[in-house]
């Protein structure tokens, strides 16, 4: 178990290195920050001066090595657009994204797992058919379209929730959070629900297929035969066995949502990191994009490590092999 955790950093370092090369080279090929920043009426001399100021006049490998050297000192570079260290920019925006994703995850698990277990256990009940229909629709509906519907229904017609923006926040451990502010929470509900719908549908399906498989296992019948009552049968014997695929997908989704909930953040004007990335790509703000991708890769590595540790806790066969 320990060796398994310790083996990771080496692999992860290689992964990060490859990722940084790809993103760095990719950005170099697809965009020219000088052209974007200098504007159309800049002279050739202006452009050269700008390139020299940004360090863009040097060959690509040299730029890359300088960049790597800076990272090792903890400096991820300075945004071309904002003129501020990119880490500051990212960490300023990160809490906004994290709290929305967190709320969406809670919604997904809290509704998805019980609904999935229910429909797995009661295959022929009308409620199961309803759940199945609703989750199919919820899963197929495009995210941006669903977001617009939410705004239309809850903000325009019913006027119960604000349509866009972040609203007031409360400071907690140096982070600005809406989650702890009753008024701020109202602003969060629509974006979180928009991300949450797909999660609920996915978790429902995972829990349902897991339940249908585990329910027919010999140990479930044996547990019934030995007189175990339904609450324990489901809460312990069944749940413990269906959690592994759920943890896997939750981990993947968590990473994806934090990194790329761009559409939702854009529609709801939510000032998260997804929006930061999109703006940075439009404006060829290379340091922001590169630092962002590296941090996101690092986050995926960490999330997967945590997922692997959870597997081992859930399943002794993994723990002892």
């Amino acid at each position: 178990m320990m060796s398994f955790v310790l083996r990771r950093p080496g692999q992860s370092a290689i992964l990060l290195l490859i990722m940084s090369v790809l993103v760095f080279a990719g950005m170099y090929v697809i965009s020219d920050p000088v052209a974007v920043m200098a504007g159309e009426d800049a002279t050739q001399a202006d452009r050269q001066a700008l390139a020299a100021a940004l360090g863009l006049d040097r060959p690509l490998p040299v730029q890359y090595l300088t960049f790597l050297g800076n990272i090792l000192r903890g400096d991820f570079g300075t945004s071309f657009v904002y003129g501020r260290p990119v880490l500051d920019l990212i960490f300023e925006r990160l809490p906004a994204t994290l709290e929305v994703v967190f709320l969406a995850m809670v919604l997904g698990l809290a509704f998805g797992i019980p609904m999935g277990i229910y429909s797995g256990l009661n295959r022929k009940k009308p409620a199961t058919k309803l759940i199945s229909m609703v989750t199919t629709i919820g899963y197929s509906i495009p995210n941006f379209w669903q977001a617009l519907l939410f705004i239309l229904i809850f903000a325009v017609w019913l006027r119960v929730l604000p349509a866009t923006g972040r609203g007031p926040t409360t400071e907690f451990l140096g982070m600005q959070l809406s989650l702890l502010n009753p008024e701020g929470l109202r602003y969060m509900l629509l974006p979180a629900a928009n991300l949450g719908v797909a999660l609920i549908c996915m978790q429902t399906r995972l829990a349902r297929s897991g339940t249908q498989e585990v329910m027919y296992q010999d140990y479930m019948m044996f547990a019934r035969a030995k007189g175990i009552a339904p609450p324990r049968l489901i809460g312990r014997h069944l749940l413990r066995n269906i959690l592994i695929p759920i943890v896997t997908i939750t981990a993947l989704e968590l990473g994806t949502l934090i990194a790329f909930s761009t559409v939702t953040e854009t529609v709801f004007s939510w000032p998260g990191i997804g929006k930061l990335l999109l703006d940075a790509i439009y404006r060829s703000d290379r340091p922001v994009v590169v630092a962002y991708m590296i941090l996101i890769t690092l986050m995926f590595v960490l999330i997967n490590l945590v997922a692997d540790i959870i597997y081992a806790i859930l399943d002794p066969r993994i723990r002892y092999s």
Partner: peptide, 9 residues
């Protein structure tokens, strides 16, 4: 081997 739940002691 299959009557006992594999993930519980």
């Amino acid at each position: 081997m299959t009557a006992l739940n594999p993930v519980l002691s």
